[in-house]
Nucleic acid binder design. Structure first.
Lengths: 217, 217
DNA sequence: CGAGTGCTTGAGGGAAGTCAAGATTGGTGG
DNA sequence: CCACCAATCTTGACTTCCCTCAAGCACTCG
């Protein structure tokens, strides 16, 4: 959607950064200095309460943007959930480029509007869904993404397989529940025949529609 | 933050709309045609699940924007929570004005970035806070807003009073709990001396810091 | 003044959290 | 290459917080 000139101006300012699983890219409440696009891997955005309770408030997959332009401090911790590669821009430079390339700013606005929509979907999950529905929704999200990545098709196939990019504890922090409840609900979906789990981090979905039917929405 | 020319161009395109409490301004999943700024009153944004469970995914107070530019359909129901006055722009016109006034688009981007931050704060509330903390957080939000409106001061006074713009059921839908639990927690805060409620919709907070200490973050 | 609506309070039940073992697994060094 | 160790995951038993169901109460408005 961007013009050639826009792309090249941005490409000049960027550099590639790699981070290992668990590396913290920006700390909650600390100043941070870059805006990055995820190239490979998954990045998690986490907020903590004073007593240590955590909530993952967003995941960034390849092509997603992380970082908060026009703010001095990060409102959340940014951490590599898997090994990741990032295409990173110095924040100041990114901001000034935005001002001189309105098309790019428009593109960013679109991306952020979509991000608000997903955040609102997640609020419904956190506020109103049962544990079973939450896990089904999370798996549907990953399965849909995996089938898109694999086939490029808009009509996803019935069968999909994918890797869970998060531990049980992290899934709990994303879905607003404990790691034990996550584990129990995964076992339940397995016993119901909705999914198969050859090992604890890979999931087969024989029929995506059956899984999606359990999300509640 | 906007130039005089920007302001006047937008003023020409706008018109004032009033809505009574309960009026639906846009329906979830339906096309909608305007982008509006709230002038007085409170607007609620609601998402529903297929079985009728509801979640309020946002509230818009005076000066906030409602409507989703660059999308054909609303992702949520927009409804007047109180009697409301809106400054409304036809969506198409609003969008084209944005393209020709990059400063305004920048302003909108800033607003949406802030909106993402609030949505993420709310995800922590919905995913991790107890009923007591949720109600304390909600009251702190309203109390802080009321004290800003009243004094314009950045150091809020200890004492504040305000009206609840939502019914118990709506507060429940906003906080991800039932109306009974909302009522019980309000009674508990009253018994603890944190708030007083001369009637069911007005709240006195004798010491805002004591209330804010119960929010958990 | 009565009816209706919204709010409060109580009693009981159920979904998820907590605490506590075991079972797997993946990584490391002998 | 295998064995062990640490970390992660699973499962079970018990507890707790919130939801559900059910009255009773208090406004507001015909």
């Amino acid at each position: 959607v961007l013009s050639r000139e826009d792309r090249s101006a941005f490409a000049k300012a960027s550099h590639t950064v790699v981070a290992r699983k668990g590396d913290v890219i920006a700390e909650e409440g600390e100043p941070f200095s870059s805006v990055s696009s995820v190239v490979t891997g998954v990045v998690k955005l986490t907020k903590s309460m004073s007593d240590g309770r955590q909530q993952i408030v967003g995941l960034a997959f390849p092509a997603d943007l992380v970082g908060r332009p026009f703010a001095e401090r990060s409102g959340y911790r940014v951490e590599a959930a898997t090994d990741v590669a990032l295409c990173s821009f110095p924040r100041r430079q990114f901001e000034s480029q935005l001002r001189s390339h309105p098309d790019v700013e428009h593109f960013l606005l679109q991306a952020k509007l979509d991000e608000i929509d997903s955040a609102r979907d997640w609020m419904v999950l956190l506020g109103r869904k049962s544990a079973h529905e939450r896990v089904a929704t999370f798996l549907t999200l990953l399965a849909t993404r995996a089938s898109k990545d694999a086939t490029g098709s808009s009509t996803p196939p019935e069968r999909v397989s994918f890797q869970l990019p998060l531990s049980r504890a992290e899934i709990g922090d994303y879905l607003g529940m404990t790691l034990e409840t996550v584990s129990r609900q995964l076992s339940k979906l397995r016993d119901e025949g909705i999914i198969a789990m050859p090992n604890s981090s890979t999931v087969h979905v024989p029929n995506l529609a059956n899984l999606a039917a359990l999300t509640g929405d």
